[in-house]
Every structure is written in structure tokens, then in C-alpha cells.
Design a binder for these strands. Structure first.
Lengths: 190, 190
DNA sequence: TCGATAATGAACACATTGTTCGATTTGTAG
DNA sequence: CTACAAATCGAACAATGTGTTCATTATCGA
């Protein structure tokens, strides 16, 4: 099996590079990190870097995809929920080292954008189904963007302030704020 | 008066550079715009650029401050409001060429960050006053971030989708969504 | 017209990028 | 253990962009 050999070595190299980038992102802002910084930190040859990634952006992006996958899995793995906010708060706390590094840099914007799109699509489908025949007094995209926007903003705030309350409390606060709106405008259980 | 002469010429140069950057931001993404692009478009000498701004970032930032000032002025100029959402929607529509250029690039993140901070501070003070002796069942920063997060997300969505409804409608939708939450948790008129 | 100020643009040193290629290391199959 | 193929290394390279310097030119007000 030839692949085993390739894969293991390559994977280790990628891990080194990824770790180096995350470390550096905790120390200075993303823009000012050079490829040289990364490969020095990772002890990886210059050409090796370019054998794995197109450029710095590519390395970051691949990391995003990893993170996005994690978030998605964490969000919808167990039971069914209309909007798995508690899961996300919990998962974020468990991996807060990773997310903190990304909050500092520009990373979080890209992750959140992708995550937001995913949540919006999911939420709109759910709401449509729950509404059934009835129509919404407010265009559904506006409702979903309202919800996800508020949610992600709170998530960011929570991270920025070093998670001053438990995930469970955050979830409760969020639901307490959003439920009346959904109830009164859509007449739907949130 | 010596300054008049300096100022007028310099100001015109700055205007040219600013306009050039905004134009370019409509054509390609901010990262890939070079100083050379900007000064070519503006017909301004290289050294002149660096006489006015430290670097590309500086030019962008100074533009932000201008925009931030506009937004702030527009928001609170006339009457008193707890949260001048209609004003912001209207002003954004009037200047949507400018904001569109910034939405494309990274600009909007910086503007919104500053704007959000401003709104949060203002809103928290207002809510505190309205509450009086009573205490909030939810920490006020969470409430304010919830509101501004939802608001700015909707504003961004509205811009991204080329303002499919009037500012008045957007404002009404937003208030319809946020009012029940504020009423039920804070027992305050929004 | 004169003088001060601003703008010009060529030339420069410097940093970073992304590529190439021969030498070297590493892991595994036989 | 050996041999081989794949992965890594790193020096050297061209290309691009940055920010500075400075002698020259244009502009505007007095």
C-alpha cells in the first residue's frame, strides 16, 4: 500500500504548518505573517510548503474547511433541533483555543460567513416547513438573517470576552431573546 | 493665508486618490489592488501618494473615518431615538454607491465594527436609564449585542441584495422582530 | 513676476513571493 | 539489509510590490 507512506508523511507536514500558522496568528495579525515565518516555525522547507498549498491563503482556507466541518458536525450530530445553539456554544467552548486564534485574525470572518450561510439555508427550510400553508408576515430571509446575525454576534461577543458565562446560560439568554419574536410574528415554536 | 493654497491642492489630490480606490474596489478585491493601481487611476505621482498617506491601509482607514462620521451624524442628527434604525436604513440607501464599494471589499468589516461599538455603548446607556431601578434578567451587553448584531446583519443583507424593499419597510420588519423580545425581557418600550 | 509649496517620476534598496532543481532523507516492500 | 520511490530540503532565481530619496517641474497666491 503505497499511499500509507505518502499520506502519513504529508499529513504530518501539513499538521506542522497548520499549527505554526495558528500559533503565529495568536502572536501577530494575519496580514503580517509571511510564508517564511510559517515554515521557520514549522521547520519545513520552502518548496515543501508550496508542494502542499498554493499560498498562505490556501493554508488558512483549508483550515477553515476543517473548522467548518467540525462546527457542522457538532451542530447537527445527535438529536434534531430547529437551531442547535447550545451545541454550538458548547463546541466553541471546548475548542476555544482554536477559535480564539481565529477570532484574532481575519479567519473568523470567513468561517462565520460560511457558517451563517449554512444556518440561514437550514433555518429557512425548517421555518417553511413549520409554517406549512401559512405565509409569513415578514420575508423569511429577513427572519433567518435576523436570527443568525444575532446568534453569531453573541457567539463572537462571548468569545471576545473569554466566555464569562456557561454555554447553557448563553443558550438560555439567546432563546429568551429570540423566542418572543418568533412566537409573535410566525406563531411557531422555536 | 498660506493654508488655503496648501489645503485646496492637497485636498483635491486626496479626493482623487480616494475616488480611485473606491472605483478599484468595485472592480477587484481590496487585497489585489496595488499602490501603483491607485496612483495610475488617480493620475497622481508615487511620492505624492506617500506624502499624504502611510500606505494603502491608511488611505482606506481615513475613508472609514469619513464614512463613520457620516453614519454617526445621519443617525442622531434630528430627533431623539432609542435606536435610529430608520435613519440608518435611509442614509445607507442614499449613499449606497459608497457602501456597495465597501461591502465588496474588506472595508465594511472595519466600519461595522466601529459602528457596532458605538451603537452598543449608546444603547446600553439608554437601556440602563430606561430600566431605572429595575435590573435586567439578562446582562445588558448581551441584550445590546443581540440587537445591534441582528440590525447590522439585516443592513448588510439588505445591501447585498440590492435593497429589495424600502428603508421604511426594513425598519418596520426589524422593529416587529425586536420589539417583542425587548418588551418581554426588559419591559421597556423600544 | 516672484517665492513658497506641492506634485512629479525616475531610481533605489529592500522584502516577499512562488518556482526550479539537484541533493538528501525517509519509509517500506522485497 | 538493500534498493527504490516518494517526500523533503534549501539555495538560487525572476518577478513583483513597497516605501524612500531627490532633483525637477507645476501651481497658486501675493
Amino acid at each position: 500500500m503505497k499511499n500509507t507512506k505518502n499520506d502519513r508523511r504529508s499529513q504530518r507536514t501539513r499538521q506542522l504548518l497548520t499549527t505554526a500558522l495558528l500559533e503565529l496568528m495568536l502572536e501577530k495579525n494575519y496580514e503580517s505573517i509571511t510564508v517564511q515565518d510559517i515554515i521557520d516555525r514549522a521547520n519545513v522547507g520552502r518548496s515543501t510548503f508550496y508542494a502542499h498549498y498554493l499560498d498562505k491563503e490556501d493554508l488558512l482556507t483549508s483550515q477553515f474547511e476543517e473548522v467548518g466541518r467540525h462546527l457542522g458536525e457538532a451542530a447537527y450530530q445527535d438529536e434534531y433541533t430547529l437551531f442547535p445553539t447550545l451545541k454550538v456554544f458548547q463546541h466553541t467552548q471546548e475548542n476555544h483555543h482554536l477559535y480564539k486564534a481565529l477570532v484574532w485574525g481575519k479567519g473568523i470572518e470567513v468561517i462565520f460567513k460560511a457558517f451563517e450561510a449554512h444556518l440561514n439555508a437550514h433555518l429557512e427550510a425548517e421555518l417553511k416547513q413549520k409554517l406549512g400553508e401559512r405565509s409569513s408576515p415578514i420575508p423569511l430571509p429577513i427572519v433567518t438573517h435576523y436570527i443568525t446575525g444575532a446568534f453569531l454576534t453573541l457567539l463572537k461577543w462571548w468569545l471576545d470576552n473569554n466566555m464569562p458565562v456557561t454555554p447553557e446560560k448563553m443558550d438560555a439568554y439567546f432563546r429568551q431573546l429570540v423566542t418572543p419574536s418568533i412566537q409573535s410574528t410566525l406563531n411557531i415554536e422555536f
